[in-house]
Structures are given as C-alpha cells and as structure tokens.
C-alpha cells in the first residue's frame, strides 16, 4: 500500500501534466471556456427556479443557491462515474508502454472533475453570500456566519476527492471488463438523480415517513449536507454528518482498493 502510493507520487509530473492538458484543451485558454463549464448548472438552476417558484411557490432567494450547490455536486458525481468508465481506455497507450500504477488514470479523471467542481463551488459560495443565509431554517444566521463556516468546506473537498477517485476506479475497472457499463451507469445516474435531494428538499415529504427514511438512506445525502450547510445555513456541519460521509468514503475506498489489488496485474489483458 505504502509502496503503491509512493509509486503514484513518483509519477506525479506525468499525471499532473495530463490533467493540465485535459483542462487546457477544454478551455482553450479562455475565461469563456470556464463559463461554458458553468453554463449547464446555471441554466439548469434557472429552469428549476422558474418551475419550482411558479408551480410550487418556492422562495427563490433560498431555493436558487440550494439547487445550484446540488447541481454542482451532481456534476462532479456524474463526471467521476461516467468519465471514470473511460479512464483506462484513455490511458491505454501508456498502459501498454510503461508499468505505472493503474490508479493514476482514474486520478486524472477525478482531478479534472474536481477542478470543474471547485469553480462551481466558488460560484455557489458567491450566490450563497449574495442571497444571504436561509433564515427559515437557521433564523439566527448572518452573512458573517456564512463566511466563518466556509473553511469547513476544506475537509469536505478532501472527502469528495477520495470519494470521486474511488468511484472512478470502480467504474473504470468495471467498464474494462464489461464494455456496456457506461450505458448502464448513465441510466442508473438518471434514476438516482430523482432519488437524491438535488432539486428538492427531503423535508418537502415531511408527512411521508417511509419516503423520507428511504431518501435519508441515500449515501449521497451527507455529502450534500456537508456542502450546503456552511453555504446556505451559515453553520458548520455536525460531526455526525462528517462521520457519515467519511464512512461512505472509507467503505468505497476499501472496495476500490480491493478491486484494484485484484485487477491491477491483469487489467492490461482486458484492454
């Protein structure tokens, strides 16, 4: 394990330069490029705001930052899953030439996605501060509370990075064995979107206890809470929330490490 991480570190210049190249080819060196990557969550937020404010009478001031943070997280989650499927094919020509640790290829994918996520998160913080804290849910909060709670996002980002890395490793390995994984993942992702409180709040189903319980079992919920509480409510998430998210990351990370342990040596025969 230690030696493996060391090997990943030793070829850091390689994967870092590939990540840099991925980002540059996507943005072509312009600010407009970064705007393009934000366009999707912004447009979706606008649409959902119109729909939810007209149809369900949502208060836009608290709803817009809520849904934007959700979509930013979802963009990261989806990218690590779907693009993760292709990570080993993307690196195939290197794999065939040089014995580097396999984990660097999913890492390339997840670091690219993490960059987009951090840009989105930056905008989410701006939106959150402009709108002010959600006083319905945390009446005593002020903008100062929001600012003070922001550093709590740092451990969250670290957890998300490990979470995304593990996911990319798993879908990447699965897709090498079974080429249709990507399509199934895309379908599953669409279904999961509606089971995750991205565009609605769990407390909208207060009177349906079973549904609420089901939604709360979703392992993505702690991550969403970790992102939303400091930005929207101006408070540092509870230790329980961190612990839940950490547990999910550990579980997934252990699974990914085990899968990599088994597949590392024979992956190339299936490419």
């Amino acid at each position: 394990m230690h030696a493996y991480l060391g090997a990943i570190w030793n070829c850091r210049f390689f994967w870092l330069s590939l990540v840099k190249m991925d980002l540059r080819s996507r943005y072509r060196g312009s600010m407009l490029g970064i705007f393009w990557s934000l366009l999707h969550p912004i447009a979706m937020t606008a649409i959902l705001c119109v729909v939810f404010s007209c149809a369900f009478g949502q208060d836009l001031r608290s709803y817009a930052p809520f849904v934007f943070t959700g979509l930013t997280f979802w963009g990261f989650f989806g990218a690590t899953l779907v693009q993760g499927c292709l990570c080993f094919f993307q690196g195939e020509s290197y794999i065939r030439q040089h014995p580097a640790p396999m984990a660097i290829y999913p890492l390339r994918t997840v670091l690219g996605a993490a960059f987009h996520f951090s840009v989105g998160l930056g905008l989410a913080i701006v939106i959150g501060l402009l709108a002010g804290p959600d006083l319905d849910r945390n009446p005593s909060a002020t903008r100062l509370h929001q600012l003070l709670a922001l550093p709590s996002l740092l451990p969250t980002c670290l957890l998300l990075l490990l979470f995304g890395w593990s996911l990319s490793i798993l879908t990447g390995l699965l897709n090498v064995r079974f080429r249709d994984t990507r399509y199934l993942v895309e379908i599953g992702l669409q279904g999961l979107f509606y089971l995750t409180p991205v565009m609605y709040r769990i407390d909208a189903f207060k009177d349906k206890h079973r549904l609420t319980l089901l939604l709360q079992c979703n392992p993505l919920v702690p991550f969403l809470d970790l992102i939303r509480e400091p930005i929207l409510l101006g408070r540092i998430p509870s230790v329980t929330t961190y612990a839940l998210a950490t547990a999910v990351v550990l579980l997934l990370g252990a699974t990914a490490a085990a899968a990599l342990w088994i597949e590392e040596r024979r992956l190339i025969f299936h490419l």
């Binding site: 590939l18 190249m21 080819s25 020509s93 290197y94 065939r96 030439q97 040089h98």
Partner: peptide
C-alpha cells in the same frame, strides 16, 4: 523499453 513506439501520444497536444 523501445517497442510500440507510435503509441502513447496525446494527439491534441
């Protein structure tokens, strides 16, 4: 190692 030399390029770079 010198084999499969034409492999391993990022064609956009």
């Amino acid at each position: 190692s010198l084999f499969d030399l034409a492999l391993g390029f990022e064609i956009e770079a």
